[in-house]
Simulated scan of single mutants.
Amino acid sequence: MAKMIFVNLPVSDLARSTAFYQAVGGEKNPQFSDDTASCMVFSDAIHVMLMTHDKYRQFTSKKIADAKNTSQVLLSLSADSRDAVDETVGKAQVAGGAPDPSPIDDYGFMYGRSFEDPDGHLWGVMWMDVAAATAAQSSTAAA
């Protein structure tokens, strides 16, 4: 069985966050969602659990960080093309997120941008031409 990842995020407004993540490509799985959490599916292997603060506190006694003021994790999703990177960041902006809180990365064979969700969680979106990256790495190693 392939490994899966479940990213758990505390959110201040579950309905707003659910709508935001649907806008950037997540599909809500009603089987694992209720009035305290939304399970947002990005792929067979990637799930984001949006949890109210009360729900999140059931899993840790640590203080919930304010992601608008502190950073604990940087999350990143892959995209199928440069255009898909721009499209995802554009959708995030339209849905109430902040585009490009981090510098845009453009190395020709790799392109990445970022957005901040309404609670301040930082997400990167990146595309890479694996063949070009491999060729670039091979030519550097040969030099």
Rank of each mutant, 00 (worst) to 15 (best):
I64Q: 10
V11N: 08
D83T: 12
R16P: 11
G26I: 09
S78A: 06
V73A: 05
A67F: 12
M49F: 13
Y107I: 06
S78Y: 03
Y111F: 06
D106Y: 04
D83M: 01
P30G: 07
N69I: 10
I64G: 11
H47S: 00
K3W: 00
Q137N: 04
G26D: 06
T140D: 08
S38I: 10
T140M: 13
A133Y: 07
A131H: 04
Y21K: 04
A15P: 00
M128E: 05
S114L: 03
S12N: 06
S43T: 09
A19F: 09
S138P: 03
T70Q: 07
V125H: 11
V11T: 01
V41M: 13
S38F: 11
V7G: 07
S81Q: 07
A143T: 01
S78D: 10
W127A: 00
A142Y: 00
V7M: 12
Q137V: 00
T52H: 08
W127L: 01
Q31K: 15
F20A: 05
Y111R: 07
T140E: 11
A65Q: 15
D100E: 08
Q58L: 10
Q93G: 05
D34H: 05
I104N: 01
T140K: 13
A45L: 03
S138Y: 00
A136G: 14
P118A: 07
Y107L: 12
V73S: 00
A37L: 08
D105Q: 12
R82F: 02
A79I: 09
F42P: 04
F115A: 10
S17G: 12
D66A: 14
S61L: 14
A2P: 15
N29T: 12
D13S: 02
L75G: 12
G90D: 15
K68C: 05
I64D: 11
F32H: 14
A23I: 05
Q22D: 12
K63R: 15
M4Y: 04
S81H: 09
D119F: 00
A131I: 05
M110E: 05
F20D: 13
G96F: 15
M40Q: 11
D105P: 00
Q58R: 13
D80F: 05
D66H: 14
A79H: 09
Q58I: 03
F6P: 00
D117K: 02
K91Q: 15
S138M: 01
K28P: 13
D80C: 01
N8A: 14
M1Y: 02
I104E: 06
M128S: 08
